[in-house]
């Protein structure tokens, strides 16, 4: 199994003060059948290590789209996206995957768990792909952190929405990433569990100095973040 430290790429430009996430006049225009749709119209965002940013805004305003771009899952129509100090434009799919590996993780709005794998395997698989030697241990710990140690062998189809969401959270936090994108991470959780999951997210920013970009409709959760930004019709302010 490859040594993680050797697989990680630290561009010479990256120092402690380099922003973890940087969006510079990012535009996204999609071509729908009715003609081009401007989804993001010049978004600027800089998030440093240890910083927490909450993005709020109405449905359909482009929050999820921005997160996809920032994580390198989609490419902007124009503008520059830098992740971990690295310009994403010249990287191909594999270069992007290698950059994210073990360092940048996502909690998807719709979870995207692998339906054919147990909760434990859903958390363990990305760790294994990223080359973590102690994948089993980390996966167990992460599921314990989201209070799902009694659901290790359950498949996504056998779990409630909230439980699936917590598996997605465990999957994102298991590797102690440097950047976490969380798209409505507490949307399906009751107040108490939601607060607990939020604690986990803010903990990783505080203790591991990770950058946390959080999309939420919950103003209490948003207000725990260092900064709250509003997305409105593809413009962030």
């Amino acid at each position: 199994m490859p040594d993680l430290a050797n697989e990680r790429q630290f561009p010479p430009s990256e120092t402690n003060s380099t922003p973890k996430v940087q969006l510079d006049d990012v535009q996204l225009t999609l071509n729908a059948s009715s003609g081009p749709v401007e989804i993001l119209r010049g978004v600027n965002l800089t998030v440093a290590s240890g910083e927490t940013v909450a993005i709020v805004g109405p449905s359909g305003s482009g929050k999820s789209s921005m997160i996809s771009l920032a994580a390198g899952l989609e490419r902007p129509t124009s503008g520059q996206v830098r992740l971990l100090g690295q310009d994403l434009a010249p990287l191909n799919e594999d270069g992007l995957a290698r950059l994210r590996r073990g360092r940048v993780t996502m909690i998807f709005q719709s979870f995207h768990l692998l339906p054919t794998m147990s909760a434990f395997d859903n958390v363990r698989a990305p760790l294994e792909i990223s080359g973590f030697e102690d994948a089993d241990e980390l996966a167990r710990q992460a599921l314990d952190d989201v209070r799902l140690s009694h659901r290790l062998d359950h498949f996504p189809g056998q779990m409630s929405g909230g439980e699936q969401q917590r598996v997605a959270v465990a999957r994102a936090l298991a590797c102690s990433p440097e950047v976490v994108f969380a798209d409505e991470p507490t949307g399906n959780l009751d107040t108490e569990t939601g607060a607990h999951v939020a604690d986990l997210l803010f903990d990783i920013a505080a203790k591991r100095r990770a950058a946390l970009i959080l999309v939420t409709h919950d103003s209490d959760l948003a207000n725990r973040a260092g900064r709250v930004l509003t997305m409105q019709k593809g413009v962030l302010s």
Binding site: A71, E93, A97, S110, L114
Partner: peptide, 16 residues
């Protein structure tokens, strides 16, 4: 497709 996207976002390369 969903699983593949998720695996990719967690660092799986196309070859993986």
């Amino acid at each position: 497709i969903g699983s593949i996207a998720a695996l990719k976002s967690f660092g799986a390369s196309g070859a993986d």
